[in-house]
Amino acid sequence: MKVSVFRLFKDGHQYAKRWPRHAVVAAFRETRLVPLLRLMEKWVPAIAVVNAVLHWQFLHAYWQQGLVTSLVILSMPLQLMAWFGWRANQPLPIRLRSWYWELRDKLKQSRAVLERPSVGGPTYMDLASVLQKALAVLPPEQH
């Protein structure tokens, strides 16, 4: 499946917003990386500017390296956002797929409105949607 770069970033942003903050999903990488992304979005531009200014001010002969370093620093949140976009479109492994269908069935029994899963089978984006809905609707013992 070929995805454009803009779609990759858009999916990554939606996936990071949709991923729940809960102990049920503590074992997933996303649980640690979403707060890191939020932190990077806030502080990385300032760090890159400070790096460029310091290179210009104190290491005038090396300002080109400072500029390149600042560009690399600025690309870090974009790299993480691209990873989230890639991860959002990956099909679920078999173990997670069974958990996805189990949660989906419990949500149907509680008459919750659900989105349809992706065409090729459930993806991590679908799992994030179902988890978000399950954590909001179902009682804790049914997660």
Rank of each mutant, 00 (worst) to 15 (best):
Pro140Asp: 11
Phe6Leu: 13
Leu59Ile: 10
Asn51Ser: 12
Val5Glu: 12
Val137Gln: 09
Tyr124Pro: 00
Leu39Pro: 00
Asp11Phe: 05
Trp101Pro: 00
Phe28Arg: 12
Leu135Tyr: 07
Pro77Arg: 07
Leu74Gly: 04
Arg87Cys: 01
Ala128His: 02
Arg104Glu: 14
Leu78Lys: 04
Pro77Trp: 03
Leu92Pro: 03
Arg116Glu: 15
Lys106Asn: 07
Gly121Met: 04
Trp101Met: 10
Tyr62Leu: 15
Arg116Asn: 12
Leu131Phe: 06
Glu41Trp: 10
Pro122Trp: 01
Leu33Cys: 07
Arg7Phe: 01
Pro20Ile: 11
Val49Thr: 15
Leu114Arg: 09
Asn51Ala: 13
Thr123Leu: 04
Leu54His: 05
Leu59Trp: 15
His22Gln: 01
Ile73Gly: 02
Phe58Lys: 09
Trp19Ile: 02
Val25Asn: 14
Thr31Glu: 11
Glu115Cys: 04
Ile73Cys: 04
Glu102Trp: 10
Leu78Tyr: 11
Ala27Ile: 08
Ala82Glu: 05
Gln64Ile: 15
Val119Asp: 05
Met76Thr: 15
Lys10Asn: 07
Glu41Leu: 14
Tyr15Leu: 02
Leu36Gly: 01
Leu59Thr: 10
Lys10Val: 04
Trp83Ala: 09
Leu114Lys: 08
Tyr62Pro: 00
Leu135Cys: 08
Gly12Val: 04
Ser129Asp: 07
Leu80Phe: 06
Leu54Ile: 14
Asp11Trp: 02
Val130Glu: 04
Ala46Trp: 15
Ser118Glu: 08
Val130Gln: 04
Ile94Cys: 03
Ile73Ala: 06
Pro77Gly: 05
Gln132Ala: 12
Val44Gly: 01
Val44Met: 14
Phe58Gln: 11
Trp99Ile: 11
Val119Ala: 11
Arg32Leu: 15
Ala61Pro: 00
Pro117Cys: 08
Leu8Ala: 04
Ala48His: 04
Val113Glu: 13
Phe58His: 12
Tyr62Gly: 06
Arg21Asn: 12
Leu131Glu: 06
Pro20Thr: 11
Ala52Asp: 01
Pro45Val: 01
Leu71Ala: 14
Arg87Asn: 05
Arg111Trp: 02
Val68Gln: 07
Lys17Arg: 14
Ala136Phe: 10
Gly12Ala: 05
Ala27Tyr: 08
Trp19His: 06
Val34Thr: 15
Leu78Thr: 03
Gln109Asn: 10
Val53Ser: 06
Gln79His: 10
Trp99Ala: 13
Leu59Ala: 14
Arg32Asp: 11
Ser129Cys: 03
